[in-house]
């Protein structure tokens, strides 16, 4: 049973692909369209990978939406000075916010749900201020950085590095140990506080990278950029089979599968021509169904 549940997200992904390619007469799987889906999924997947580290510990990171906005705004602001500054500044913004989130959770002991929600508010306000209540255009030349090769390299690097860190290093093991049982992890010598800050730092760093990618893709840092992105990440991760409690069953694959599934769904529903008003409902039903089938009830003592 457990084995079956593990592969449910994969089955879901395959089912969605088969269903939509049948409905679109193969249009979905054309090379061009696959590239499109990739383009649309990159930011989501990288964002999900970052949050995976946080969720592995059983915490939440809901500040992603505004962080995407503010790091994008920083990238665009500094791109106007020197394009080379945009990426480092976006990433630094992400790291700084991650540090704040992590510190407030680990050392001030404020629950992550509260911390990251409050930070979400603060950053949204700052984004509006940073974009001068509007938007900052990117220099035209930088639009061409929205290039398949660059994005693919970044994505592959992020996935490889994250996979290695998450699966093979003490870092990943410690984080999952915290998710499985914080007290026992502490007694077995896991530096809990440090790990918590580190998880948010990674999440922030990758979200900063997303902010840059997003600005380069759209050519604009807008005051509404990233609004409700945190919910997209949460739904994608859960679709991909990520347990909210974290622990040993939290897998990095969830980020990739979930991100792809959401992008496929959005693209597929437009291709099929499902009425805009109904698209959300279809998403909602698929979401509930997927989680119902894949949720590992056995490994969770209490379902909250």
């Amino acid at each position: 049973m457990r084995g079956f549940k593990r592969i449910v997200p994969y089955i879901g992904l395959v089912l969605i692909i088969v269903l939509f390619s049948a409905l679109t007469g193969g249009k979905l799987l054309s090379f061009r369209n696959l590239k499109l889906i990739f383009n649309q999924a990159v930011v989501l997947i990288i964002g999900c990978i970052g949050v995976t580290f946080v969720m592995a510990q059983g915490s939440l990171d809901l500040s992603q939406g505004s962080l995407l906005g503010i790091s994008g705004a920083m990238a665009a602001t500094f791109a106007a000075i020197t394009p080379g500054l945009s990426l480092p500044l976006a990433i630094l913004t992400g790291i700084a916010v991650g540090m704040i989130n992590g510190t407030l959770l680990a050392f001030f002991k404020i629950p992550s749900f509260i911390v990251t929600l409050c930070v979400l508010f603060v950053l949204r306000g700052l984004t509006v201020i940073a974009t001068h209540s509007g938007s900052i255009p990117l220099p035209f030349a930088m639009l061409s950085l929205d290039n398949f090769r660059i994005k693919a390299s970044i994505l592959v690097t992020v996935i490889l590095a994250a996979y290695y860190a998450y699966t093979y290093t003490s870092l990943g093991k410690n984080m999952r140990a915290i998710g499985s049982g914080e007290t026992s992890a502490r007694y077995s010598g896991v530096p809990v506080e440090r790990m918590k800050v580190l998880a948010y730092l990674i999440s922030g760093l990758l979200c900063g990278l997303c902010g840059w990618l997003n600005v380069v893709r759209t050519g604009a840092a807008d005051s509404k950029t990233g609004l409700l992105f945190e919910l997209d990440i949460l739904t994608a991760l859960v679709l991909g089979g990520m347990p909210l409690t974290g622990g040993s069953s939290a897998k990095l694959q969830s980020a990739i599968i979930g991100g792809l599934m959401l992008a496929l769904l959005s693209n597929g529903m437009v291709l099929v021509g499902i009425k805009a008003e109904l698209q959300q409902a279809v998403k909602g039903v698929i979401f509930l169904l997927a989680v119902y089938l894949s949720f590992e009830r056995e490994s969770v003592v209490m379902i909250k």
């Binding site: 739904t235 409902a281 909602g284 979401f287 509930l288 989680v291 379902i303 909250k304």
Partner: peptide, 13 residues
């Protein structure tokens, strides 16, 4: 029997 946060996101939609 899935977490309430997920149930309520799905139903919210």
């Amino acid at each position: 029997k899935i977490p309430s946060m997920i149930v309520t996101i799905g139903l919210m939609i």
